[in-house]
Simulated scan of single mutants.
Amino acid sequence: MAVVQAILDGLMIGGVYAVISIGLTLVFGVMGIVNFAQAEFLMLGMFVAYYAWAWLGLDPLLAAPLAFAVVFVLGAALQHLLIRRVLKAPEVAQIFLTVGLLIVMENAALLMFGSGFKSVSTPYQTASLQLGPLFVSVPYLAAFLMSVASGLVLWLFMKLSWFGKAMRATAQDPMAAKLLGINSDRMHMLAFALGVGLTAFGGAVILPYLTASPTVGGQFVVLMFTVVVLGGLGSVAGAVVGGFAVGIIQSLSGLAFPIQLQNLVLFVVFIGVLAFRPKGLLGAAR
Rank of each mutant, 00 (worst) to 15 (best):
A54G: 03
W162S: 01
A108V: 14
F117K: 12
A177S: 14
G29P: 05
Y140P: 02
L56M: 12
A193K: 01
L129C: 08
G132K: 13
V227W: 00
L11R: 03
V27I: 14
W53F: 15
A191P: 04
A149D: 05
A191G: 12
L179A: 11
A239F: 04
R168N: 00
K88M: 12
I95Q: 02
P208V: 10
A256F: 13
Q172P: 00
W162M: 01
T122F: 05
S184F: 00
V241K: 02
S213I: 09
T215A: 09
R168A: 06
L97V: 08
G247T: 00
Q262R: 15
G114R: 12
N183P: 03
G10S: 13
A200E: 07
V4C: 04
Y140F: 13
A6R: 11
P65S: 10
S253R: 05
L264N: 11
L230R: 05
S213E: 12
F244L: 13
I271F: 15
I206P: 06
A127H: 13
K165A: 03
L87Y: 14
G232Y: 00
A177C: 11
A284C: 01
G10Y: 07
I248A: 09
G238R: 00
F192E: 05
A204S: 12
S150N: 01
S128H: 11
V241E: 00
I83G: 01
A284Q: 13
A52G: 06
G231P: 03
L101R: 08
V104C: 09
G234A: 01
F225Q: 00
M43I: 12
A245Y: 00
Q219L: 14
L264T: 14
G197S: 06
L82M: 15
F257R: 07
G32E: 06
S184D: 13
A275D: 05
A176N: 07
V227T: 04
V138E: 03
V222M: 15
I271A: 15
M187Y: 08
S161L: 01
V229T: 15
F117A: 11
V136K: 02
S150G: 03
T199P: 04
Y50F: 15
S253M: 07
L62C: 08
W155C: 05
K178I: 02
Y51F: 15
S161K: 04
L264A: 13
P133D: 15
R286H: 13
L129S: 11
Y209A: 06
L56H: 03
R277I: 06
T122W: 04
N107C: 07
V120H: 03
G197K: 05
Y124L: 07
Q260G: 10
L74G: 04
E106K: 14
M31P: 07
A52V: 04
Q250A: 01
S213P: 06
Q250N: 12
G243F: 02
K88L: 12
V27E: 08
M158E: 05
A54F: 13
T25A: 01
G243E: 01
V27N: 10
A285S: 14
V269N: 05
M167L: 14
L156T: 09
A204E: 07
R186Y: 06
G164C: 05
L11P: 03
V19R: 02
V104G: 05
Y51H: 13
L264C: 04
L152D: 03
P174I: 08
A6K: 12
G151C: 10
D9R: 12
G181L: 07
K279M: 08
I206Q: 14
L223K: 09
G181S: 05
E91R: 15
V196H: 06
V99K: 10
A77N: 06
N107F: 09
L102W: 14
P278D: 10
V228F: 01
